[in-house]
Nucleic acid binder design. Structure first.
Length: 214
DNA sequence: CGCGAGATTGACT
DNA sequence: GTCAATCTCGCGC
């Protein structure tokens, strides 16, 4: 097979479910392989924190496509962030890969991230993870399930139950508990609420309560 | 066509 | 804890 349909189907569900499933999966770019330890779910026009909130644009068009493709964007003019497109074709959704453990090619990752204090810091944070994998916007739109793709996603068994909490850094939708991470992983990034978001649990943005260890 | 905002990081007070 | 760096997007004039 050239494309794993079962894996694609696993990512075609609702945003939070699809994102949660990515935990423990492997991302490979060249010599570097990362095991995903932290993700966030983003939806479409209904999700004010999503890039697709205002509808389809050239940049976010890939989010409206079939699951299993890459959406890479430039954040704050300097850091790249990787999303895995989720949900059925025609609806906008993606999972931001926030952090991972470098399980292969750590020396290569370190060349790209000389500032990393430890191996756990190589891909701890979305910008750092994209840097460790050597990603830029040219990777956006790639089919991650194609064995010939320069960036590949491979499913793996998820041993632990995921913890969940509100998404990091978002100004709106800051109370939606759509961040998922694996317990006891030193590679999971620290939680920082956006200063532009109101106080936690502020009215108007109320969603599900955080659980676990935010 | 100008301008403000942003799914971040790392350095500094 | 606070703050600047840096640039693309997308809305408003």
């Amino acid at each position: 097979m050239t494309r794993d349909l079962a894996v694609a189907a696993a990512l075609a569900g609702p945003p939070a479910q699809a994102a949660c499933r990515l935990l423990g999966w492997l991302l490979t770019s060249g010599p570097v392989t990362v095991r995903i330890t932290e993700v966030e779910a983003y939806a479409g026009p209904d999700d004010p924190a999503s890039h697709a909130w205002r509808g389809r644009t050239p940049r976010t068009a890939v989010m409206f496509g079939p699951a299993g493709h890459a959406y890479v964007y430039l954040s704050y003019g300097m850091h790249h962030c990787l999303n895995v497109v989720t949900g059925p074709d025609g609806t906008a959704a993606a999972a931001l890969v926030r952090a991972g453990e470098v399980v292969q090619g750590a020396p290569d990752a370190r060349l790209r991230r000389p500032a990393a204090a430890s191996d756990a810091d190589l891909a701890r944070g979305p910008g750092r993870l994209a840097a460790a994998l050597g990603l830029d916007r040219s990777f956006s739109g790639l089919d991650l399930l194609d064995p010939d793709s320069p960036l590949r996603l491979v499913a793996a068994n998820q041993s632990a139950v995921a913890l969940r909490g509100p998404r990091v850094g978002v100004a709106r939708g800051a109370d939606t508990a759509w961040r998922f991470w694996l317990p006891d992983e030193p590679t999971v990034s620290a939680y920082r609420r956006s200063p532009r978001a109101g106080p936690a649990g502020s009215p108007g943005a109320a969603d599900s309560e955080p659980r676990g260890r935010p």
